[in-house]
Simulated scan of single mutants.
Amino acid sequence: MRFLIAIIIAATASVALAAPPAGTKLSTLIAKVEEAHPGIVIDDIDWSDRGFWEVEGYVNGAEIELRVDPAGTIINRR
């Protein structure tokens, strides 16, 4: 029974977390973000388990947070 529970938990965990898409180059993502926001200083880039990149940085001293889809299109700015 414990073995079955462990398999169910492992399967659920692997489905719940989305991996970064294969073939997406971080350098391409950075170039697209810099093109859309000239002068941005990128502080952090993370892959969200909800299926998008989270980019944090500063533009003219103001903090900016971007969500970028796997193709490199900015889908949300906060």
Rank of each mutant, 00 (worst) to 15 (best):
F3W: 12
F3C: 11
L4Y: 08
I5T: 14
A6L: 14
A6T: 13
I7H: 07
I8Y: 00
I9S: 12
I9T: 15
A11R: 02
T12M: 10
T12C: 12
A13L: 15
S14F: 05
S14M: 08
V15E: 05
V15H: 04
A16C: 09
L17Y: 06
L17I: 10
L17E: 04
L17N: 08
A18D: 08
A18L: 10
P20E: 07
P20I: 05
P20M: 05
P20S: 07
A22L: 07
A22M: 04
G23N: 13
G23S: 14
T24Q: 12
K25P: 11
S27A: 15
S27E: 14
T28D: 14
T28P: 07
L29W: 01
L29R: 02
L29G: 01
I30Y: 01
I30C: 01
A31F: 04
A31E: 05
V33Y: 02
E34C: 10
E34I: 08
E34V: 09
E35L: 15
E35K: 15
A36C: 03
A36E: 03
A36K: 10
P38L: 08
G39C: 13
I40K: 02
V41T: 15
V41P: 00
D43Y: 12
D43V: 14
D44G: 09
I45H: 03
D46C: 11
W47A: 01
W47N: 02
W47I: 02
D49G: 15
D49Y: 13
D49I: 13
D49E: 13
R50C: 07
R50F: 13
R50H: 08
G51N: 11
G51W: 06
W53A: 02
W53K: 03
W53L: 09
E54P: 02
V55Y: 00
V55I: 13
V55F: 02
E56K: 08
G57A: 07
G57P: 00
G57T: 09
V59S: 06
V59W: 06
N60S: 13
G61Q: 06
G61R: 06
A62G: 09
I64L: 15
I64R: 10
E65M: 09
L66S: 01
R67C: 00
R67A: 07
R67M: 04
D69Y: 02
D69S: 03
P70K: 04
P70L: 01
A71S: 14
A71F: 05
A71Y: 08
T73R: 15
T73V: 08
I74S: 02
R77T: 09
R78G: 13
R78A: 07
